[in-house]
Design a protein around this nucleic acid. Structure first.
Lengths: 142, 142
DNA sequence: TTTACTGCAAATACTTTGCAATGGG
DNA sequence: CCCATTGCAAAGTATTTGCAGTAAA
């Protein structure tokens, strides 16, 4: 819980530094984001934030998320056939396994794949600005 | 051109085999798909097909694409912040580099990365049903 | 002839935006 | 006190769908 709290205040600092005002609604959303262990969508974040501040509107959730995303503080993931999901930007980049039955998201990291990606881009005369690797999976029968 | 023509009639065969009727509109769309060297979206396919059959509606484009996708004959790609793009399903799987300045799409293949993906899924107790690897790139300054 | 397919317009689903009121700094 | 931010409702996008008419096979 210390983790979540400090993460939230870190985000506030970062926003404030950019001349952004910390409102009641934003404090609530940041708290919800910092405490989320899953990858909630805007609607889910709205419900959770409403429990802290019932005046919070969905529009504000979207506006704040967009702002946070533009500062690079939050990542927006658009998985197949679903609405966008959000998570606090982590220092260490990771990709996702999507459990197509349960909708669960599992994070993973593969420096080895990243290296290969760089090589491929290089080979085509490009430099990677961002990338997306998603594995749509099903639990193994076994 | 022979390539495109035979590809189109192959798709017709495959559809027909499934009890799907080959209409004037569908013939036009299949032709357009087979001739496309890029990755057009529904709207673009609609414009191109209209030149062959002006009665073609956007709804029919979407309906036919959905049908083709369900038969596995066409792939739908949803790149960041853009509408879905379609291409005839290729025998050999490939992933994409997206030129974020020009919007161009470059295809590439990496059996090495595929192998690593399998390992990762395996390690988490999953089997991959499908995956998506997209490199959002910018031409190198050199 | 049968019934899958079509165009059209309306419906979705998610996200963004205009506006007047509110409140953070 | 000023202007960024808010809630609300309306507007956007991209895609899907209901319906009555049309046309493959």
């Amino acid at each position: 819980m210390g983790r979540a709290k400090s993460q939230a205040s870190y985000l506030e600092q970062a926003l404030r530094a950019d001349g952004v005002r910390i409102t009641r609604q934003r404090t609530a959303l940041l708290k919800v984001l910092a405490e989320a262990k899953d990858h909630p969508d805007a609607n889910e974040l709205h419900s959770r934030a409403r429990e802290i501040d019932p005046t919070m509107s969905l529009a504000t959730v979207y506006r704040t998320l967009t702002a946070l995303e533009q500062q690079g503080l939050v990542h927006r993931h658009v998985f197949e056939g679903a609405s966008a999901r959000f998570e606090i930007a982590d220092a260490r980049h990771h990709d996702h396994i999507i459990d197509i039955d349960k909708g669960e998201i599992i994070e993973f990291r593969s420096p080895e794949i990243e290296r290969l990606q760089e090589q491929i881009a290089e080979r085509h005369g490009y430099e990677i600005v961002s990338h997306k690797l998603e594995l749509y999976c099903r639990k193994k029968a076994t």
